[in-house]
């Protein structure tokens, strides 16, 4: 049985002042208390809003990308001997109530990494343009990985101590999502997916990847695999 106090929630954030407080409060309402925001060099007071909402903030002094912020979270969890690390987006796309599904899967499935898949949920609310980007991301990741993933680009993930101890991400940008799966398979970690809901707002669609960053992500992942 995984206790809530054992779960350390990390939220990588870059200029998310308008949503970060809401995301933190939604977690606190469900009694999750170990909430840390990795502020990736924000210039809009994201760190102040996060602290005001009651989260601990680890601050990158300049923006280095979502992958770099995630690796900071992993390193922190490793040195602090955290039992479970949970990654969640700061734009309000993920729902705090879905966290339970990841925890349950981690408990029953003997998994090292659990991914919240937006495509396994019966009501996929993702807009068409995003679906295409994610489809391409999945195809590329599945080509390089042994397991087939329905949502390789999801930022909602839970890692246990074994995963925390063995992952060292090298990609600074969004390519880290695929890289994590690739490295996890190399380290013989067990990976599972569970359905989650995702909420898309004009704000959350502005953030994240667009076509051009998607192409860059694909190239950086391929370069990582081929030039490793």
């Amino acid at each position: 049985m995984i206790r809530k106090s054992e779960i350390h929630i990390f939220i990588p954030a870059f200029n998310e002042a308008s949503t970060i407080g809401h995301v933190i409060r939604s977690l606190q309402q469900l009694d999750y208390q170990n909430i840390k925001v990795i502020d990736d060099g924000s210039t809009d007071q994201t760190d102040h809003k996060a602290m005001a909402a009651g989260a601990t903030v680890i601050r990158h002094f300049i923006n280095r990308g979502a992958g770099a912020a995630t690796q900071t979270a992993i390193e922190y969890a490793r040195t602090s001997n955290c039992s479970y690390l949970l990654l969640m987006d700061a734009d309000g796309q993920h729902l705090a109530k879905d966290l339970k599904k990841l925890v349950e899967q981690m408990e029953k499935g003997n998994s090292d990494i659990v991914i919240g898949s937006r495509f396994l949920h019966p009501a996929v609310a993702m807009p068409g343009s995003r679906k295409w980007l994610n489809y391409l991301g999945n195809q590329l990741t599945n080509l390089m990985c042994q397991q087939k993933y329905t949502d390789s680009q999801s930022g909602f993930r839970m890692l246990n101590r074994r995963a925390i101890g063995s992952l060292n991400l090298t990609l600074d940008e969004f390519g880290f999502c695929s890289e994590m799966l690739f490295l996890a398979e190399k380290a013989n970690l067990k990976i599972a997916e569970v359905p989650i809901e995702a909420v898309y707002t004009p704000y959350s669609l502005q953030k994240g990847q667009n076509f051009f960053t998607g192409v860059q992500t694909a190239f950086s992942f391929l370069r990582r695999i081929l030039l490793r």
């Binding site: 680890i58 601050r59 002094f61 300049i62 280095r64 770099a68 690796q71 900071t72 040195t79 600074d172």
Partner: peptide, 17 residues
């Protein structure tokens, strides 16, 4: 250089924290 910069940024963030 980018890699070094990321490493320094991360180390500094964790050290400051």
């Amino acid at each position: 250089q980018e890699k070094n910069l990321t490493f320094l940024t991360r180390e500094l963030a964790l050290k400051n924290h």
